[in-house]
Design a protein around this nucleic acid. Structure first.
Lengths: 335, 335
DNA sequence: CCGTGTTTTTGAATCGTTTCATGAACGGAT
DNA sequence: ATCCGTTCATGAAACGATTCAAAAACACGG
């Protein structure tokens, strides 16, 4: 009935609990014959270690938490995939938390993770409002690495992609293709990635005298893209190209345009962001700004373990990757 | 330095640890004035509850684990989304584990989850080989609900969709459209869902004298679909329609066909499975067999909490939903 | 001022591991 | 026999929260 503990195992094997613990944690320190007896007892009783007790004693858990904006966005699952191998080979476990771009959910997760004394935290914060919360964690000896987001003046390591540059790449590409009026679709603008991508785009537009219309969305998903298109099609003098803050939005926009019979790219070109696998497989293969997703995750995990290893005398590192534009049919000139 | 514990708070507030605990867990049992003093001390010291200690005492964690075949598959994220609200409103936390269709990874997760004494487990098992492992969990008082998978003779609750029927729907649809040779793409065949969908498809083909060619893939993802198409196009007398075991495979297949200039649906029709959001947004909008994803998750969580509530005298329930075929352009006749 | 009843607070026991200083057992060298 | 060095095993002391019986504090009527 009641779960069996080490004490039960010890009794069954006729040894002390200390010995049982040794069998589990440093088998080489236990005599062959004793070890066998203990293992037999364990199998016999169906004993399972109690991780809570273990952690309580250890003071830390082996869990590395990754807090992402949206688990349904392939961009983030790829980041997670990148981080996992490193964490697991270090004997850790990954747990993924979805903030859903919602600051309150994010905060709830952070509180819980702190109570759990996680080993470390990789996080793409929703916006700046949780900064102090996050600092509190690292103040409590939980190393934090910001993902897909420069650390700025925050005291953490970070891995990021130059989103301003990414925005510039997208805009330049469209300007080169001859577009004179561009729409930007994405939001909320409190999300730094969104602001930066828009910022880069705006720079280029101003430099080259191209008109820019901004459609701010409540989130970065499929539906947001579709709805923004409704708005855009309603306006007179409509843009001949849209730059979407991520691929999900772009796919939504594509569907919206198609539903209204607007031909892509002839009547309206599209550039997305992230270059998720689905982008290439879309109704019209999407041009997109590619980020090194898996590498982001891998590097983030690496920085985390470096920080853990280096202990006190650690200086934070901020790694920045450069994005790359992948041109496909959605911005093609001919046909 | 060392994390502050309840003892420190107690000392700072000039009360006993018992009182601090009461402030946190049953504030109404503590005098107004004392409570304020304790809360002040907590804020002052930046005290954070230690969840390990809490769980150790409680004997169980508040975590409900969901083990899925592939987190990158929108089908599963939708299932998780369906389950989350219920779990959270019951004061629980959801943790998602990705088995990646790999029995060993699955097993590793199960071991860990058992050590963590999770509150309950929702799982889509990779195949039958973990059955005894899973039974062990429920033997150890961890209720288990099988997701997207009939319980069969296994002693668990389950929520499932009738995959055989789903397979029939897909095949019937293609037969009605006049196809006389159909390809099935999916695998590995050890995955019950794959086997069932193929089974239903095969039934219909035999009933109506339609030829069926099976392409077994090593996994249910994008790439698998693309590769299977390479094989299929190599064969002479090639099928005029493919039924894919899920939408990711179907999207891969679609891309493969498009890359080889094979027109969909004119030269080759496609039916997918799951009806994920991307299906409708694909290059050629995909016909697909829809499953009630969110409802699967919601119902699974419901069954889990029912089982927890009912305790000893609980009889397992097996809920089966019926799938529905959504016809789109990828199987259209005209154009 | 005493008994009685109610509201608060206390402190020790408990959960299951890990750790570590001690001690036991044994073999070999003297 | 005695002493010493290994190799193994022991058991008590943490870790930090929760629980609960019992004590303390207080209120109030007589």
């Amino acid at each position: 009935m009641t779960t069996t503990s080490m004490k039960d195992v010890a009794r069954a094997a006729g040894v002390s609990v200390g010995t049982v613990s040794n069998v589990l944690n440093r088998p080489e320190a236990v005599a062959e014959e004793t070890r066998a007896r203990v293992l037999a007892a364990i199998a016999d009783l169906g004993y399972v270690r109690n991780d809570s007790a273990r952690q309580l004693r250890a003071g830390r858990s082996r869990t590395v938490a990754i807090v992402v904006l949206d688990v349904a966005n392939p961009f983030f699952t790829d980041v997670v995939r990148g981080a996992e191998p490193l964490v697991e080979s270090a004997g850790g476990v990954v747990t993924v938390c979805d903030s859903g771009e919602d600051v309150r959910r994010e905060r709830r997760h952070l509180e819980l993770l702190e109570e759990q004394r996680v080993l470390g935290l990789l996080i793409t914060p929703v916006d700046d409002s949780s900064a102090s919360w996050i600092e509190r964690l690292s103040g409590h000896d939980i190393p934090v690495v910001l993902v897909d987001r420069g650390a700025g003046r925050h005291p953490h390591c970070s891995v990021a992609v130059d989103d301003v540059h990414g925005g510039r790449l997208a805009a330049q590409h469209l300007v080169e293709r001859g577009h004179r009026k561009i729409a930007f679709i994405g939001g909320p603008s409190s999300i730094p990635q969104v602001a930066d991508r828009l910022g880069g785009c705006r720079e280029v537009c101003e430099e080259s005298g191209v008109e820019l219309e901004v459609f701010t969305t409540p989130g970065l998903n499929f539906q947001a893209g579709r709805e923004a298109i409704e708005l855009m099609l309603g306006s007179e003098d409509r843009p001949t190209a849209v730059f979407c803050a991520n691929d999900l939005v772009a796919l939504g926009a594509l569907q919206g345009l198609t539903m209204h019979g607007v031909k892509v790219p002839q009547e309206c070109a599209i550039v997305g962001y992230d270059d998720i696998d689905f982008a290439a497989a879309a109704a019209v293969p999407l041009s997109s700004v590619r980020q090194p997703r898996a590498q982001l995750g891998r590097t983030a995990a690496q920085l985390l373990f470096d920080e853990i290893a280096e202990g006190g005398d650690h200086t934070h590192r901020n790694v920045v990757f450069q994005p790359e534009l992948i041109a496909r049919a959605s911005t093609a000139l001919e046909l």
